[in-house]
Amino acid sequence: MRPIITTLIRINTAIERIVIAVGALIVAAMVLIVFGGALTRYATGIGFGVAVELPPMLMPWLVFPLAGVLLRSGSHIAVDFLPEKLGGGGLRVLRAVIALIAIGAGATFVIAGWDAASLFRDIGQVTEMEWEFPIWYIYLSFPVGFAVLISFAVENLLLALTGLDDTGGGDSAGVHAVTE
């Protein structure tokens, strides 16, 4: 069991680094495109639709891959009344249940997201911007994001079942990389 968990944690740690870096770059792109759009309009009187329309289109690729990664650091908002009352075994059971729910929800949304991406690929719909590209490239962020979520939820499940992280076992480097 331990080698499997260790490998999964390594993979997830790599995913986490990539996804956070991509997210940071998307935010930087948003700031620069919006600022650049305002600046060119002010300086030349010419405003480009792309500066207005592109940044919101980047949002799904910022949000959904990260949503799964944040399961690891517990950054999501949750009611932690019950976890604070439970200890030891009870807490592990609860964490396993939460992970299972996340896996189930993740699987549902991977399928739904894939359906949506396929639909728009089949229709051949492009973005309504001056700079056109197929809109399913953006819809792809849903199945990808929720697949990432499943991967992190499986890690949480295995850790809860084995109690490895309680005993300090496993390579948990990066577990607390995201602190808010």
Binding site: L119, F120, I123, E128, I135
Partner: peptide, 25 residues
């Protein structure tokens, strides 16, 4: 347009110049 395609609704009001060019310019 996407909602009509997937069947999320059965009927819809669609503006040609908004919804059609993304499918056929």
């Amino acid at each position: 347009m996407g909602a009509l395609s997937s069947g999320a609704v059965e009927l819809g009001g669609v503006v040609g110049v908004v919804s059609f060019p993304p499918v056929d310019k």
